[in-house]
Simulated assay, not measured.
Amino acid sequence: MNEKSEFLYVHELKPGMIITKNVTKGGDFLIREKTIVNEDIIARLNKAYFLEKIEVTISNEVIAQCTKEAEIQKVEETFKEISTGLKDLFLKLDKVKEEKVNDLRVFSEKIQLALKSKEIVISSIVFKGSGEDPIYRHGVNVATLSALLGKWIGLEPSKINLLIYAALLHDFGMTKLEQPVPEKADILLEERYQVVKKHAKIGYKYVDSISSLDKTVSYGVLMHHEREDGSGYPLAITGEKIHCFAKIIAIADELDVMNSDEAYKNSRGPFEILEIIKEKSLHKLDYEYSKIFLEHIANYYMGEDVILSTGERAKILQINMNDLARPLVLKDGEFIDLSKNKDIHIKELKLS
């Protein structure tokens, strides 16, 4: 195993590094040489206010992990920046429409640049959901997932660009509702639903009035809640009448909404959410698009670590597209087919 030596401050230490020499402070012994750095070691050095550099050896594996962490941080900062910019765009879109189109171009370029690190974006950023930002970060996540699906189904670059615009703007209407969306649990769901349903038409009205935007962008905004069986809104149209952008955004939207609800995600488990997308593809979401989406997403989980419902760690070896929630895993050298072991399920992904 190749290693290299470095002199690092405490805040630069990472688990897996090996301390080369005894660490002392004012004659007091702190850490013995050849100790492998972990979170407890870092905490002990921080508590001792150790300010000098420490000599450590770093393996290629640790270097790779540090590189991955840096890339995750870089992408996360990009997505936060786009989310902030999207909020500003929404605030001004009805006043300086044409000028703000250039902002969309910039956001699209940044998202497509981030997608050069697909594994990072999918496993460590997007699949964590949009947290407490159901409009702007949600829009960025949906645009990212939509761009991925657009590439996977073979859309040409110019259309992917327009698709990203539509996905970024898909919930613009939520910011223009005449009354705020009820948030309290005691408000009837139907009342909340009737308020929210208006956002698709409202968003379409604003976006369609921007002459420099292709009409396909406004179609994606208008129809992203339409469903294959006609159960969607605002037009209740079916199948081929729904624009392909809206079909793509619908899949991305559903996934991010489920991933953003921690209680729902924890009760269902990460793979059950993919199973729900598959189930909805039978009647509500476009079947072919959903199939392509799930097949590609599943590939990013091969070889990843998971926590089972037993509390034990395992590695995913194979995912059965007919039973997405129950893959074949390897635990302590033992193969476990979760489709045949109904008492065990995957509780948590350990992707980064």
Rank of each mutant, 00 (worst) to 15 (best):
F90A: 14
I316F: 10
F50K: 02
M321S: 03
K331S: 05
I18G: 10
M174W: 13
Y206L: 09
S124Q: 14
C244T: 12
K205L: 10
G239R: 05
A298Q: 00
M1K: 10
L149V: 14
D94G: 10
K284V: 02
I277P: 04
V101D: 02
V121G: 04
D133I: 13
C244I: 15
T144Q: 13
E295Q: 09
Y289V: 08
E39D: 05
L168E: 03
N22E: 14
D94I: 14
K350V: 09
V37G: 15
I36G: 08
E81T: 10
I36R: 07
D337S: 12
A298P: 06
P134Q: 10
E191F: 07
W152P: 04
E348P: 08
A114D: 08
G303H: 00
L188D: 13
I19S: 05
L169I: 14
P270F: 05
L351M: 02
D229I: 14
I82D: 01
I72S: 01
G139L: 06
I135F: 00
I18F: 02
M174P: 07
D28K: 15
I249F: 00
P15H: 11
E6K: 06
E71M: 06
G26D: 11
Y219H: 00
L282R: 08
E6P: 08
K315A: 02
K205M: 11
A70Y: 11
L93W: 01
E99K: 06
I249R: 03
K4E: 09
E226H: 14
T310Y: 02
I63D: 12
D214V: 01
K80N: 12
I54W: 00
R44Q: 11
K47G: 00
M223W: 15
F7D: 13
S218C: 13
H199N: 05
F79P: 04
S212H: 01
K47V: 01
E304T: 15
K205W: 06
P15C: 08
K241C: 07
Y287R: 08
Y264F: 15
A147D: 15
L163C: 15
W152K: 05
G16E: 15
V62T: 06
P157T: 12
H296N: 15
G85F: 04
G220L: 15
A143S: 11
E6T: 00
T216C: 14
V75C: 08
D94H: 12
S339Y: 02
G27S: 11
K53L: 07
N161Y: 13
K197Q: 05
I120D: 03
E71K: 10
V257D: 08
K315F: 11
F127H: 07
G173R: 07
T144D: 08
A70G: 00
T57R: 03
N320R: 04
R105N: 02
P180L: 06
Y300G: 03
I54P: 01
